[in-house]
Design a protein around this nucleic acid. Structure first.
Lengths: 130, 130
DNA sequence: TTGACGCGCAACCATTTGGTTTCATATACT
DNA sequence: AGTATATGAAACCAAATGGTTGCGCGTCAA
């Protein structure tokens, strides 16, 4: 895994409200670009750019079918968000936390409620200080 | 509830890696600005700006003590993220989903696993199309 | 084969973002 | 009083963002 410049990460991708709407729309069904953009007040090109950002973050996947490009949602990257969030849940959860983690154990794999809960941002965290 | 222009929301606030680090740091203990910025390679002023953005999103709270300003983390706004994410969990969860939701029920209040799961972005979603 | 459709790309633009440096002010120390 | 510390505010900057319009190209349908 040395490739993938990954210019945009999940956090950035979902920061924009239009992009969240896009994701929501695509979660219901896959769609072609023009169809998608008919749901938004901005130009098709603008929508297309947003889609590319989502794509770079791995949140959508495109598939060319004839002259159209279908986009479908790809939820996996959201797990990163989830695990980031998991760290902070302890600040408002207290009661049934342990049980929940236990139940959920099968999902995260590296989330074993074992040690002192490592830091959240150790994900890829380029921390690009420009 | 007519006040609070809330220029920055949670999604935007956590989009920046530095801000996430900031949050992580402050989750351990409250700290004054200069102390905080000693942990970062950027200027104190820059850190201060990030703190203000976090503050606008409600993720940190400041308290003036003499000549210094202490910042502490405020996890509540992350619930919005959590509930946003909850919508998408159904796309990768399937097995123990119901149980988990049930266990967690006491935390979310509007998250009763009842109806057809309303749309995620209905939160405040200014959807500011600039 | 001639359009019409679907889409990406390039160029351009205004605004926002993440930084910096400098300055002003309030508080603490001696 | 005079100095050092802590922080915010202002002005400025380069780069990133979110948009737009126009163009070119592949694909589908007459």
């Amino acid at each position: 895994m040395s490739a993938s410049p990954a210019k945009h990460d999940v956090f950035q991708a979902i920061a924009d409200p239009t992009r969240r709407k896009l994701l929501e729309l695509l979660s219901e069904q896959e769609m072609a670009v023009t169809t998608i953009s008919s749901h938004f007040p901005i130009s098709r090109t603008a929508v297309s750019k947003h889609l590319r950002i989502l794509s770079e973050a791995g949140l959508v996947k495109e598939q060319k079918i004839g002259r159209e490009t279908r986009y479908r949602m790809q939820p996996e990257p959201l797990r990163e968000l989830q695990s980031w969030l998991a760290y902070y849940e302890r600040f408002w959860e207290n009661k049934l936390h342990a049980l929940k983690r236990l139940v959920e154990g099968e999902a995260s794999s590296n989330d074993q409620l074992s040690g002192p809960r490592l830091a959240p941002d150790n994900h890829r965290s380029t921390t690009k200080q420009s």
